[in-house]
Design a protein around this nucleic acid. Structure first.
Length: 258
DNA sequence: ATGGCCGAGATCCTCGGA
């Protein structure tokens, strides 16, 4: 089984890239973030034509998440956190895989810049609510596979020039501590279980020739509860998509399960 | 060497992204 996660920065602009990605890599689940459209405008029928159903938590202009899938699902949920601004930033479904009930979640955690504004405070509140959810799920011994744009650079090897980012909402120590806490609370950064190398990025800014100079960030992650980490076969970053015409600024990460 | 963007939605600019 394959589960991919991708911040597409507009599902309508990226539809052809998404269709080609599904045909080429054949994921069973594709978790989307930043679809930037209301649910009614989601390209359900184009995806259905190539064998995928979609569950969508959309929003006009900004944010928006979705799960595209070709397996049986149940228990669809929006909003795993208490979002004070009611933005569309999470969606989950349950699946049965090898007789295990697993919750699959697509998340789009707030950016939080600039740090001296209420956008940063919103990110902190969102992360606190997310942490509470994770701790609660861990107590219940639930099995979770969370993919998404976390807007957190976990460590210095995950950014091209750490010194430039020390006061940024993606890298501030206060924010990185949330990620460490998730690992302490019973979850794994799936990518780091299979790949220890530096400079593996999932995002490159549109500006300054960032991609050509490989000035990127690793901010898209698969976070798995430890009770399913034995299922991880591989985690790959599908970097080739950033080099296509009219790309998203993020590329997919792809989780293969045993 | 430096700096260069993109999408949505309402207008020909602003906001948000990271």
């Amino acid at each position: 089984m394959i589960i991919s996660s991708w911040n597409v920065n507009s599902v309508r602009v990226r539809l052809n890239h998404i269709l080609n990605y599904l045909k080429k890599n054949k994921p069973n689940f594709l978790l989307l973030q930043e679809i930037k459209t209301e649910s009614k405008n989601f390209p359900y029928s184009e995806l259905k034509e190539i064998g995928y159903d979609s569950e969508v938590h959309g929003q006009k202009s900004y944010n928006g998440v979705a799960i595209i899938y070709n397996k049986k699902i149940s228990n669809l949920n929006f909003n795993i956190t208490n979002d004070e601004q009611e933005q569309s930033r999470s969606i989950s479904v349950d699946i049965n895989y090898k007789n295990e009930l697993i919750k699959i979640i697509s998340v789009y955690i707030p950016n939080g810049n600039p740090v001296d504004t209420d956008k940063y405070q919103y990110k902190i509140k969102w992360l606190k609510s997310f942490e509470k959810f994770l701790i609660n799920q861990n107590k219940l011994k639930n099995k979770l596979i969370i993919g998404g744009d976390f807007n957190i650079i976990p460590n210095e090897e995950d950014v091209y020039n750490p010194a430039d980012w020390e006061n940024d909402a993606l890298y501030r120590i206060e924010i990185r501590k949330f990620f460490r806490k998730m690992l302490n609370d019973g979850y794994e950064d799936a990518f780091r279980l299979v790949n220890k190398k530096a400079n593996n990025y999932t995002f490159w800014d549109y500006q300054n020739g960032s991609f050509e100079r490989n000035k990127g960030l690793r901010i898209d992650h698969f976070l798995l509860s430890k009770n399913v980490s034995h299922l991880i076969k591989d985690v790959t970053i599908d970097k080739y998509l950033r080099a296509l015409e009219r790309p998203s600024d993020h590329v997919p990460i792809r989780l293969s399960l045993v």
